[in-house]
């Protein structure tokens, strides 16, 4: 069970290759505009790209798009919503309520209106929505950027527990400290090129 990307190339990315085994967290760092989010989008197959990605020995191109994304899940930095209420964005309300408690969200958060959510609540609920069905690969784009230190710790705890359950996780972060706490392997990106960092 490992995520392997080889030769990912788009108009911004040049020949990006990486590998994250299940049960590990790879951190991805680099200046803004380097192409980190675009690499995550390509791995989730949200943008056309050259190169190939495999998970568990199965190539992206051999799987249908929706099938691939049910396993390889992108969690963008800013969560978007298609319903006025929080609840309809979740598959199972019971599961979501149970997990919400771990991120300091009250039980009734599923009945909240999206319009009254704070930035931090949006980020946590967007994260919950993406991990609710335990996808095998998580592509996390700055998952704690909008959170205070304490709530950020709770999200990190959940990320660790997902890793311990066997998920392969690629995490974009701007924080040295966070990378030091979570990284099992590290990548750095500069102007569309990826290199393994020590």
């Amino acid at each position: 069970m490992r995520l392997i990307a080889k030769g990912i190339t788009t108009s911004v990315l040049t020949d990006c290759s990486l590998e994250v085994p299940g049960g590990e967290i790879g951190t991805l760092r680099g200046p803004s505009g380097a192409g980190k989010s675009l690499l995550l989008r390509a791995i989730a197959d949200l943008d056309p790209h050259e190169g190939e990605v495999w998970f568990d020995g199965v190539a992206q191109s051999e799987t249908s798009g929706p099938q691939w994304r049910r396993q390889v899940r992108l969690v963008p930095a800013e969560a978007a919503w298609w319903d006025d209420c929080v609840g309809p964005h979740f598959r199972s309300l019971d599961e979501a309520r149970a997990m919400a408690g771990l991120l300091d969200l009250p039980k009734d958060c599923m009945t909240w209106q999206v319009a009254r959510l704070s930035t931090g609540e949006k980020q946590r609920l967007g994260f919950l929505r993406a991990v609710e069905d335990r996808p095998a690969v998580l592509l996390l784009d700055e998952p704690t950027a909008a959170l205070d230190a304490e709530t950020g710790q709770n999200v990190e705890t959940m990320i660790r527990s997902l890793r311990d359950d066997g998920a392969a996780i690629l995490l974009v972060t701007h924080s040295d400290a966070q990378a030091n706490r979570l990284a099992d392997r590290r990548y750095a990106m500069e102007t569309g090129r990826l290199k393994a960092a020590v």
């Binding site: 963008p76 919503w81 298609w82």
Partner: peptide, 21 residues
């Protein structure tokens, strides 16, 4: 609605499911 549509796609929806609204 591009962010919302792409979020549904990222969560595994087909193109017509994501574009239904």
């Amino acid at each position: 609605e591009r962010p919302a549509i792409e979020t549904r796609i990222a969560l595994g929806a087909t193109r017509f499911e994501a574009l239904r609204p």
